[in-house]
């Protein structure tokens, strides 16, 4: 006869294994969701880029181009923002640690391309939109490397909530991404959090909402 203890241990082990398996499945699911959304983001950006080239090749009306691009790019930027938050949230919920940094890197490159298109929208189409490049400490979930970064992120949220024509593009400070290193050098970024507002005004260290708002033309979301 199999002892009570053996059966109990087996039952206990099965329950724990089932829990670990659920955790693992959830981890996999998270990666799937993010991969899918990143793919979606790639396609939409490719779509916009090619369409823009097409319009230019047709020597069409600049205004018409701008109107079309305005819709697409602003929608994509909003989605990218959600995706960035999702990646960070999922990274925190993760148990078995797949390589989130690789995902983050891929996202940063795509986000930067989106930023270039956005910049074009402001510079060439004279659209009344603002961009803030925000340098933060990467992979710092409990804000021990950059204690002010969490606060700065919250402040930026408040600014965005008020000035609906402003978007934030976050770049990780002091990582192995050459592109970002060049920009850090360009604006002489020494510490985080740091902000570059509309390519002109640079702030280093924690910056309050009203200070930020002095440098932007606070307004409504052009799509609304």
């Amino acid at each position: 006869m199999v002892s009570v203890y053996v059966k109990g241990l087996v039952l206990g082990a099965l329950l724990i294994i089932a829990s670990m398996a659920s955790l693992w499945i959830l981890d996999k699911q998270r990666i799937n969701v993010i991969s899918e959304q990143m793919q979606q983001m790639s396609w939409e950006m490719e779509d916009s880029r090619l369409f823009l080239n097409y319009l230019e090749s047709m020597h069409g009306d600049k205004n018409a181009q701008c109107t079309i691009m305005k819709h697409r790019i602003i929608q994509q930027v909003e989605k990218a923002d959600m995706l960035a938050r999702k990646i960070d949230a999922y990274r925190n919920s993760n148990v078995f640690s797949p390589d989130y940094y690789a995902i983050k890197k891929t996202f940063i490159y795509k986000d930067f391309e989106l930023f270039l298109q956005f910049k074009k929208l402001r510079d060439e189409c004279n659209e009344s939109v603002n961009y803030i490049i925000y340098f933060y400490a990467e992979n710092d979930p409990d804000h021990s490397a950059c204690p002010d970064c969490g606060v700065q992120a919250s402040i930026l949220d408040t600014v965005r909530n008020k000035c609906r024509n402003t978007w934030v593009f976050a770049l990780p400070y002091n990582t192995d991404i050459d592109l970002v290193k060049v920009i850090e050098k360009q604006y002489n970024i020494q510490k985080v959090p740091a902000l570059v507002i509309n390519g002109e005004r640079v702030y280093q260290g924690l910056t309050e909402a009203d200070e930020i708002e002095k440098n932007i033309d606070c307004g409504e979301n052009p799509l609304e």
């Binding site: 204690p147 949220d157 408040t158 965005r160």
Partner: peptide, 17 residues
Amino acid sequence: LDAKQFIATIMHNAFRV
């Protein structure tokens, strides 16, 4: 570790994660 950070996170909780 950082009460200021914690309070700020609550106060500015507009669109947060």
